[in-house]
Structures are given as structure tokens and as C-alpha cells.
């Protein structure tokens, strides 16, 4: 008899694989509540919520969090503007070297972060640009642009050029066409791209290490904190914050683009 259910072995393998991927994340949450502050002994000797209060009252965490939010927000806005413009140019115009430029735009995400980091660091050095919040933002924008571009270019491609002409044909001026036709079709893709870019920027470590100078974003702060065995569970509390700040945007982006496919895949 034919069965739609997977075999037992396959199901066990799938569950084991998912457990391997996600149990460590649960452990991070668990250790945020442990009473032992120097080692991660299992099982935790006791449970407490005191670390949330401790984390709340430490200014270094607030500084790092604010810096991370600031960097992610500005890098995302930059990426959304530039990424959309590049996508529009790539999908609406034909010019010499278009394919090559498309490859160049995608390159930052294909390159190892170490390479991007070193390249930016030496470029900043040669140009005598001191490390600041802006150097971190520039570093993050390199890959955030790609994320937004990828989302936008796929949507542009699905949106048949005919609908823009149809809008003009029916009497709409350029602004009306943008407002009523282009934006509704592009909106969710841009929002999704922006969310993903924000999440990527928020937990970026490698490029940041090379471009941050003395400042610490939240992930950098966590890395430094793990080396010092003092109030370790505070790091776990912060990890939960990073988790929420990156996971939620990605989840929202996922649902946005899923609906978007139904929306834009209906041109013909």
C-alpha cells in the first residue's frame, strides 16, 4: 500500500537534524536563567531572573545596543534607496556592461567577510578616514544593498513592463503610476529586503571587527564578554535580545514575500 508518510528512518533523521540545529539556541535561553555565573554547568544549579535586572542596569550594554540599532537602521535605509535604484536600472535599461555590473553588485555578499573587512579597513586607512559609526555603517551597507537589490530585482522582473504603460495609457501621470502601480507591487519586496538587511546588519561581526575601531556593536560586545568570565548569563540575556531583533524581521520578511508571490505572480 502506498503511503504519503515518510519512512521512520527519514523522520528520525529529520528530527535529529532539526534538534541539532535548534537545541543550542534553547540552551542559550536556558542559561540566561542560571544561578551559576562562571561556567555553563549542566544542569543549571538553580534558576533566577536576576540577570535581566543586571543587564538592564549595565550602561555598556545600552551603548552597544544603541550603536547596533543605529548602524542597522542607517545601513538599511541607505541600502533600500541604493538597492532599489540599482534594481530599477538593471531591469528597465539595457546598456553596455550591464551583466558585469550586476555581478559586481552581487559580489560583496559572495566575498568572505574577512576580505570585505580588510579591503574596507585599508581603504579607510589610505583615505585617512578615522573609524567611527559611519565606517561601520558603510561596511554594513555593502552587503545590505545586495539583499535589498536581490529582493527588488526579482519583483521588477515579475512585474511586466506593460502595467506601467497601461497606467500611463489610462491617463495616469508618472507620480500616479509610481504611487498606485509601482509602489504597491514593489512595497512588500522592499520591506522584506529591508527587514533582512536590518537583521543581517544587527548581528554582523566580521566586517564590523575591521571597521569599528574602538566602538563595540552588540555582537562585538558579546564576543568580548565571553572571554571574561564575569556575569556570564548577562551575555545570554543579550543573546535573547539579538535573537528577537534578528528573528522577528526575518519572520516578517518571510511572510511578506510569500504573500508577494501570490500578488505579483499573476501578471499573465
Amino acid at each position: 500500500m502506498h503511503s504519503d508518510r515518510a519512512s521512520l528512518g527519514l523522520r528520525i533523521a529529520a528530527v535529529a537534524g532539526l534538534a541539532f540545529l535548534h537545541l543550542p539556541i534553547l540552551l542559550i535561553f536556558l542559561y540566561a536563567f542560571t544561578t551559576e555565573e562562571r561556567t555553563y554547568a549542566f544542569p543549571p544549579p538553580g534558576l533566577t531572573t536576576q540577570w535581566f535586572a543586571v543587564a538592564w542596569s549595565r550602561p555598556d550594554i545600552w551603548d552597544a545596543l544603541l550603536l547596533s540599532l543605529q548602524v542597522a537602521a542607517v545601513a538599511t535605509v541607505l541600502a533600500m534607496i541604493l538597492g532599489t535604484l540599482v534594481a530599477a536600472a538593471m531591469s528597465r535599461a539595457r546598456f553596455f556592461g550591464r551583466e558585469q555590473i550586476s555581478l559586481l553588485v552581487l559580489l560583496p555578499i559572495a566575498l568572505p567577510g574577512v576580505i570585505t573587512g580588510i579591503a574596507l579597513r585599508s581603504a579607510f586607512g589610505i583615505m585617512d578616514i578615522p573609524f567611527s559609526t559611519w565606517t561601520i555603517i558603510l561596511g554594513h551597507a555593502t552587503f545590505c544593498i545586495v539583499i535589498v537589490y536581490n529582493n527588488a530585482v526579482a519583483r521588477f522582473r515579475r512585474l511586466s513592463g506593460g502595467v506601467m504603460e497601461a497606467s500611463a495609457d489610462l491617463g495616469a501621470n508618472a507620480f500616479q503610476t509610481f504611487r498606485y502601480v509601482l509602489l504597491p507591487n514593489l512595497g512588500t519586496a522592499l520591506l522584506a529586503g529591508g527587514m533582512l538587511a536590518f537583521a543581517l546588519s544587527f548581528d554582523e561581526v566580521i566586517v564590523t571587527t575591521f571597521t569599528a575601531g574602538q566602538q563595540a556593536t552588540l555582537p562585538i560586545w558579546m564576543l568580548e564578554e565571553l572571554i571574561r568570565p564575569r556575569q556570564r548569563p548577562v551575555t545570554n540575556v543579550v543573546a535573547m535580545v539579538v535573537f528577537a531583533a534578528t528573528f522577528l524581521p526575518i519572520l516578517i520578511a518571510y511572510y511578506l514575500t510569500r504573500n508577494g508571490q501570490e500578488l505579483a505572480g499573476s501578471g499573465k
Binding site: 506593460g162 495609457d169 501578471g267
Partner: peptide, 12 residues
């Protein structure tokens, strides 16, 4: 006004 070849209806 034009009836376009692929109709070009607004999908949204």
C-alpha cells in the same frame, strides 16, 4: 486607450 497584448492588468 489601448487593449494591450498581454492585457497588462494590475495584478494587485
Amino acid at each position: 486607450n489601448t487593449v494591450f497584448q498581454d492585457y497588462a492588468l494590475f495584478p494587485h
